[in-house]
Design a protein around this nucleic acid. Structure first.
Lengths: 128, 128
DNA sequence: GATATTAGTATCCCAAAGGATAGCAGTATC
DNA sequence: GATACTGCTATCCTTTGGGATACTAATATC
């Protein structure tokens, strides 16, 4: 019996570890959203802040720093007045596209499913 | 200029919304891991707790309740002594497989990449 | 009668994530 | 000289996710 349990966890262990790694790197409320935004092209700090309405500069700055460390974005400083800083996705950031796409597709289907189930609930109520 | 910013956010908006929906449903430290475990077959409460070493009963119970509400698991109570309760994935839970697979694959590749970059760093240090 | 088992609850607590607000340097513009 | 713009940082505060510990009912077993 103990052996059985052990067998199960070992079989999943690799998957669990890999998934934990991924979630750790993409942790936080904003990183995935930032990647989605930046896929349109490089953006400036204030542009990002305005696009993600609720994000504060402190949090945005922290997320961008972490993404720079993980080689998801490149930070470029231009010697203009006032200074211009752009954030741009690296090619490595493109490797998370499958994750983003699967998240987006599932969310879309899930929403449709919920709307459909609400409609059928209404029908049932009417039919009673 | 304002129009340009608006254009960008509108183009991404659907994706951002869908992604937020997905992350909301799969939120928390444990739900994805529970799905991975339960893909092996139905498990009992204590079995799950033992498999996910660090989870406390309070948290496990909360996660399972949320997953039941989202129709990811079915909870079955058997009239044995002591009582037996099993948790089993629904067919709907299988729809998140693409997400889980993309998370697992990316985590695996990312880990390999980090190991590789560590090795090359060592080489460079030696070569200096 | 003490102990073990199951599937949880109840209560308390803590750390981390993240929000609110203010401010700064450096320049340009009114 | 006041104000505005950029890209932040600093400080403080709140929320919430989740861990630790203890406990329950009902029965069986020692």
């Amino acid at each position: 019996m103990a052996a059985e349990i052990k067998h199960i966890t070992e079989k999943c262990n690799g998957a669990l570890l890999a998934i934990r790694d991924t979630l750790y790197v993409l942790s936080g409320k904003w990183k995935i959203q930032l990647i989605v935004l930046l896929r349109e092209g490089p953006m400036r700090f204030n542009e990002l802040q305005r696009s993600l309405v609720d994000i504060t500069p402190k949090v945005l700055s922290k997320e961008l720093r972490e993404m720079e460390l993980n080689e998801f974005v490149i930070r470029r400083v231009y010697d203009t007045v006032p200074v211009t800083v752009t954030y741009e996705l690296t090619p490595y950031a493109a490797t998370v596209d499958p994750i983003i796409n699967s998240l987006r597709e599932w969310g879309t289907q899930h929403r449709e499913r919920i709307i459909a189930s609400r409609k059928s609930e209404v029908k049932e109520t009417v039919e009673e």
